[in-house]
Design a binder for these strands. Structure first.
Length: 497
RNA sequence: GAGCCGCUAGCUCAGCUGGUAGAGCAACGGACUUUUAAUCCGUAGGUCGUGGGUUCGAUCCCCGCGCGGCUCACCA
């Protein structure tokens, strides 16, 4: 609950304001920018942690550090503070005899939350903590609001999301999540680059939102008087690049889908999509396994990863099942059921899910899979042989046109990756778009055919495989996060009022 | 969109079957030159998310609303 400007708050704020005014009145700038940092707290820790106190005494070098005051223990003529910088914390000892009267007067006025610059030598306290004996102290920023309490920190989930900066300040493990997120993305980037993939950026604002079936966000360009949509997928643009001769491309960027919010869904989320000419979906099964194992090795040094109340085993090779095999195996359903819309619909109803035999067999199979199988796929599992009806952009299987050359990867019951050999037959593609459009018109939605994309296909797109990986969900797995909001710095929340 | 749960001091939390609120930390004043949840003495801080209702009386019971969490639905 972040109601600001309440009466009782203002007394706390007024006290800080007064200190600020006092500082200004005394002629010093409370917001200077002339302090030079020579070291981070981590650099000093690494350099001196192993030294004996006697050896430390010999070090006459002075160090300049800057950071936020995170704790403060005041004595009559001395004080201990901890400052926090981007690499951690370091204790500093402020002693009247050493600091001199002016700096010590400043020291007595410090509040938790202020930024300070300190300069001094290193020593070890009686309790064996590496500490800076401060010779010069400078106030770098006067903080005007009290930080959350030092012991319990900030735990209110709403405040943690709304004021993420406080969450990051007070909860080191949160900072760790976002360091790890960046590390994972970096690993993916270099992994793909080393295999000859070119990183590209394609439009976020699209005239025709394509490449997936989700409701888009709408926006408008004033000068062109043009309605535009935030992209729901980069797919159709990356394929144009295949047409253009970039044989291996990838993009890591935001997609926007105007749908519900949950622990697995944020309206804007980060997607990796990559495309490789002359590759098949089976090549991408191998590539995906290799890439995610590569991440596991670099992040954990292990194939066994703790996630919430379980452990997930990433040891390759991962299980591979066709969708039908999976339904038979996990759903205890007889094979003939999977060949008849009536029986499949019946089976769905028996499991308690409404369905109609009017639906296509492909949609029914997909529904059965999602209801009966998906949540059981804890260990990484590739599901292949998807129905053509639910895969409008995928290449038909050569021996069975009712199925496409596609897989999805599931881990912990979550869809992590979706890949297929790409449909590059412009005539088939047009028909499938038409079919998709017809079914959407039933839902009252009007969709426009992307004629420009179809034209590009007509020029010829090399045979290729393409894949999308939801980065946020992957990061959740590797950060033991239960909600997607825990791996997105600023998740979307309604305004407070 | 539905169901359940939550919202009390800056932060973290108590508050019984209804009698207009407490603690710790933070803050403020004082003591203290190796502390680390520093310690000791003292002080102050609240429209109990919000709007109604019931009642002599509501933080507490009832209804609406807001925001959040979880589950479900939606999302190939």
């Amino acid at each position: 609950m972040g109601r600001q400007n309440m009466k009782e708050t203002s007394t706390l704020l007024e006290v800080r304001r007064k200190k600020l005014e006092e500082c200004t009145r005394e002629g010093s700038n409370p917001f200077p920018n002339d302090f030079t940092v020579s070291h981070t707290t981590e650099q000093l820790r690494k350099r001196f942690e192993q030294l004996e106190p006697g050896e430390l005494e010999q070090i006459e070098e002075e160090f300049s550090l800057a950071g936020r005051v995170m704790s403060l223990r005041n004595f009559g003529k001395a004080a201990f503070i901890h400052i926090q910088d981007r690499t951690g914390t370091m204790q500093a000892y402020l002693q009247k005899d050493v600091l001199g009267d002016d700096d010590f007067t400043l020291a007595k006025k410090l509040d938790v939350g202020d930024f300070v610059g300190i300069q001094g030598r290193v020593f070890v306290t009686r309790t064996q903590e590496l500490t800076i004996k401060v010779g010069q102290l400078q106030l770098l920023v006067k903080s005007l609001r009290p930080l959350p309490e030092k012991w319990h920190g900030l735990s209110n989930i709403e405040t943690r999301y709304r004021q993420r900066y406080l969450d990051l300040l007070m909860n080191p493990e949160v900072k760790e999540v976002f360091y790890r997120r960046t590390k994972i993305i970096h690993l993916i980037r270099t992994f793909l680059q080393e295999k000859g993939f070119l990183e590209v950026e394609t439009p976020m604002m699209q005239g025709i939102p394509g490449g997936a079936a989700a409701r888009p966000f709408k926006t408008h360009h004033n000068t062109y008087k043009l309605d535009l949509y935030l992209r729901i997928s980069p797919e159709l643009y990356l394929k144009r690049l295949l047409v253009g001769g970039f044989e291996r491309v990838f993009e890591i960027n935001r997609n926007f889908r105007n749908e519900g919010v949950s622990t697995q869904h944020n309206p804007e989320f980060t997607m990796l999509e990559f495309y490789q000419a002359y590759a098949t979906y089976e090549d991408f099964i191998d590539l995906t396994e290799e890439m995610i194992c590569h991440i596991a090795q670099h992040v954990f040094g292990s194939f066994t990863i703790p996630y919430l109340d379980k452990e997930i085993d990433f040891t390759p090779p991962w299980q591979r099942l066709s969708m039908k095999e999976a339904i038979i195996h996990y759903g205890k359903i007889e094979p003939p059921v999977l060949e008849s819309p009536e029986l499949a619909s019946q089976a769905l109803k028996e499991c308690g899910f409404p369905s109609s035999p009017q639906d296509s067999l492909g949609h029914l199979l997909n529904e059965l899979f999602e209801q009966v199988v998906q949540h059981r796929l804890i260990k990484p599992t590739f599901i292949t042989s998807y129905p053509t009806a639910v895969s409008p952009l995928a290449r038909r299987n050569d021996s069975n046109p009712e199925e496409v050359d596609r897989f999805e990867l599931f881990i912990n019951g979550q869809e992590i990756a979706n890949a297929f050999s790409e449909l590059n037959d412009p005539i088939d593609q047009r028909e499938r778009f038409e079919k998709q459009r017809a079914s959407h018109e039933d839902d009252g939605e009007v969709t426009t055919l992307d004629e420009d994309f179809l034209q590009a296909l007509e020029y010829g797109m090399p045979p290729a495989a393409g894949e999308g990986i939801g980065i946020d969900r992957l990061v959740m797995l590797f950060c033991n996060a239960a909600s997607i909001r825990d791996v997105i710095l600023f998740p979307l929340l309604k305004p407070e009022r």
